[in-house]
Amino acid sequence: MNKLLKYEIRKTRSAKLILLGITAVVELAFLAGLYLVKSDDNSLLIVSCLLLFMLAMLGVSVIGLLSVLILHHDMNTKESYMLFMTPNSAYRILGAKVLENGLSILLIGAFYFGLGFLDVTLLFAREDSLQQLWEMFDQILQTISHEIQINPAGIACFFLWFLTGWIATITTAFLADIVSTALLKGKRFNGVVTFILFIALQSLLNRLLPLFSRYSAMNQRFLIESGINLLFSGLTYVGAAEIMRRKLSV
């Protein structure tokens, strides 16, 4: 499994490096706007802030999309032999992909979160006027935090919820792509069917979640939904791996 994981990580390396490269450029622009521009013109600062925010969003989406594209490539080109001639079960092959994606999203998430935190701190440290704004913001947070429980446990629950939801999305997408490649290859509308399958499974999950968690408090709700997400991920993962094992011809 470690070996498979190693190569899955290698496959996403270039895309991640490009993302990091672009982020580094925009971050430099942000720092330049912060420390080098002496005039009152804040446009560089504002634009780079916006770009960084968009990059963070984009980065997370790209990681998800990329993993589906790589799976698709790994099943539909000659490079598929690399994976499928090795003595690794479909469960392991797919498992390495899910694991790689989970780790990536954690790392990328932590990276952008950390960078955002750093930049906001720098921004407030420099602009006195913003200092007051920050205090006000802090005040608001303090007031509402009683209700939504912003504390380490709450944050942990939120991240768990986000991560499990993410993995459920990825395994659903994997299942849809494997169904398309293994069962519908060469059939008409296979792309459409795949897309509909993905949407259907996702909305099924989204309908399922509130059924169980509707009446719970916030953190509990995150935990219950995380559990359902995990269960759903497990089912789609097993389904995807079984179809791969029985039906996939590369």
């Binding site: 190569y7 290698r10 496959k11 000659k78 490079e79 598929s80 032999y81 690399m82 001639m85």
Partner: peptide, 10 residues
């Protein structure tokens, strides 16, 4: 097994 076509990662 060795296939006719190249199959190594690029």
């Amino acid at each position: 097994y060795m296939s006719t076509e190249p199959y190594f990662y690029s």
